[in-house]
Amino acid sequence: MAYFNNQKEPVQSVETNVWSCVSDDCQGWMRENYSFDKEPACPICKSEMKQEVRVIPEMK
C-alpha cells in the first residue's frame, strides 16, 4: 500500500506479557519471551522483576 506526504503505515499495538522491575528508581522491563530464567533479575539494576501486561508495538 502506498502512503503519500511522508506518512508511514500505522504500527499495530498488542498486549504483551513483560517482566517489569519492582524498584522505584528503575524503569527497566523486558518482554517475557526474551528471558530463559523463570524469574529474571533486572538487567539494569539487578532487582527483582514482576510479570505484567503492556500494550506495545508488535514485532514482526
Rank of each mutant, 00 (worst) to 15 (best):
N6Q: 14
Q7I: 12
E9D: 12
E9V: 09
P10F: 09
P10Q: 07
P10G: 07
V11T: 12
V11C: 04
V11F: 03
Q12E: 15
Q12F: 09
Q12H: 14
Q12M: 13
Q12K: 15
S13A: 13
S13Q: 15
S13K: 15
V14L: 15
V14T: 15
V14Y: 13
E15C: 00
E15L: 09
E15I: 05
T16M: 14
T16Y: 08
W19H: 00
S20N: 11
S20Q: 14
S20V: 14
C21Q: 05
C21M: 02
V22K: 05
V22S: 05
V22F: 03
V22G: 01
D24C: 06
D24T: 12
D25T: 10
D25M: 07
D25F: 05
D25H: 08
D25R: 04
D25L: 08
C26P: 03
C26L: 03
G28I: 02
G28W: 00
G28Y: 00
G28S: 03
W29L: 02
W29V: 01
M30T: 05
M30I: 06
M30C: 09
M30F: 07
R31L: 10
R31K: 06
R31V: 06
E32T: 05
N33F: 01
N33R: 00
N33T: 03
S35Q: 04
F36L: 02
D37E: 10
D37I: 04
K38E: 14
K38R: 08
K38Q: 11
K38P: 07
E39P: 02
E39V: 11
E39R: 07
P40C: 06
P40Y: 07
A41L: 08
A41E: 10
A41T: 09
A41K: 13
A41M: 03
C42H: 02
C42G: 05
C42K: 03
C42V: 04
C42L: 06
P43I: 09
P43W: 08
P43Y: 10
P43F: 11
I44V: 15
I44T: 14
C45Q: 10
C45H: 09
C45V: 12
C45I: 11
K46V: 11
S47M: 10
S47G: 13
S47V: 00
S47T: 12
E48L: 07
E48Y: 07
K50E: 15
K50N: 14
Q51Y: 04
Q51S: 12
E52Q: 13
E52C: 11
V53N: 12
R54E: 03
R54A: 01
R54S: 01
R54L: 12
V55E: 14
V55A: 07
I56Q: 06
I56C: 01
I56G: 01
P57L: 02
P57R: 00
P57Q: 05
E58L: 10
E58D: 10
E58M: 08
E58Y: 01
E58C: 00
M59V: 10
M59H: 07
M59G: 07
K60N: 13
